[in-house]
């Protein structure tokens, strides 16, 4: 027996992709895969529908349902307060947008200070570490109380007295500590070889950070940052404790007036309407990041 089992002789040259027609085997395979995909989609749809029906039936047939329906899902109450709550919610959105920008700046600054190695900056580095330790350790609500009631009590000249501004300061300080840590993790996640490569090109520490490390770090931390911003969007409601007429506060007032919880549900619906798209966007970004890594691994 010859050791060499030659298969079909190789064609000298093959034509390009244009002349290709799928074989019968391949067409049958594709039909089977399409059928399987349809079957899987159908299974998923049926399962979801059954679950939904079970949950709805269980809730609606519960003994207290009529009471809950009247107290939480009251159409008249909803119509009466929705406009006001929406108006209040606009304040939440404003607080969110302004705080977000400040948090990003503060977080990045804190992270950069914490990763620098220059000895002259050591006191600032210690201060940044202390800041993160303290403000990440204190519950956000407690911080809002401390700043909202404590700062004006100092009666210093120029301290803001608006509860919205005070609330935003508390949010920025609290989230700045978190976001600083996210950025720092991102900076540390860039492979050390990248730093060496940049140094080898003669870039200064500052230039290395600015042009090589930071762009990669930011790309890596976008999904966790969005996660923090979803939390921030909800936590703007904590500022309600200082009294400004934002969505939760307006809903609370409505609820107390009519002894009905529907306004709270209306406020909840508004928060969901904003956070769900951000969540989906964060998911999408994360998936893209995974695909990118996978392509690199190939």
């Amino acid at each position: 027996m010859s050791e060499f089992t030659a298969a079909v002789p190789t064609p000298a040259d093959t034509s390009g992709t244009a002349g290709y027609t799928p074989s019968a085997v391949q067409l049958e395979r594709e039909r089977y895969r399409a059928a399987r995909r349809r079957r899987e989609r159908l299974t998923a749809g049926v399962c979801a529908l059954v679950l939904l029906v079970v949950v709805v039936v269980a809730v609606v047939s519960s003994p207290g349902w009529a009471e809950v329906h009247a107290k939480f899902l009251n159409g008249t109450e909803f119509r009466r307060y929705f406009g006001q709550i929406l108006h209040g919610f606009w304040l939440n959105v404003q607080m969110f947008l302004v705080s977000e920008v400040l948090i990003l700046a503060l977080g990045l600054l804190v992270a950069l200070v914490r990763v620098t190695r220059s000895p002259g900056l050591a006191p600032i580095r210690w201060a940044a570490t202390a800041y993160v330790d303290v403000f990440r350790g204190v519950p956000t609500l407690l911080l809002i109380f401390l700043i909202g009631f404590g700062l004006p009590a100092l009666q210093l000249q120029g301290t803001p007295s608006s509860p919205v501004v005070l609330g935003c300061i508390a949010l920025v300080l609290s989230y700045g500590a978190y976001v600083g840590e996210v950025f720092r993790a991102g900076l540390n996640s860039v492979h050390p070889a990248q730093r060496n490569a940049a140094k080898a090109l003669g870039l200064s520490e500052h230039q290395t950070l600015r042009h090589v490390i930071l762009p990669q770090a930011v790309r890596n931390v976008v999904p966790p940052l969005l996660n923090d911003f979803i939390a921030l969007q909800k936590d703007t409601a904590l500022v309600a404790t200082l009294g400004p007429l934002e969505a939760l506060r307006v809903a609370q007032i409505g609820s107390y007036a009519d002894f009905n919880y529907t306004p709270y549900l209306a406020a909840a619906a508004l928060f969901i309407a904003v956070t769900v798209p951000i969540t989906r966007y964060a998911d999408w970004l994360q998936r893209k990041a995974i695909e990118r890594q996978w392509a690199e691994a190939r």
Partner: peptide
């Protein structure tokens, strides 16, 4: 007759191979 493509790019074409 093995064929593999990524996107529109053909990366394997008309591969016949036996390993005894």
């Amino acid at each position: 007759n093995l064929r593999k493509q990524y996107g529109g790019k053909t990366v394997l074409e008309s591969i016949d191979l036996d390993v005894a």
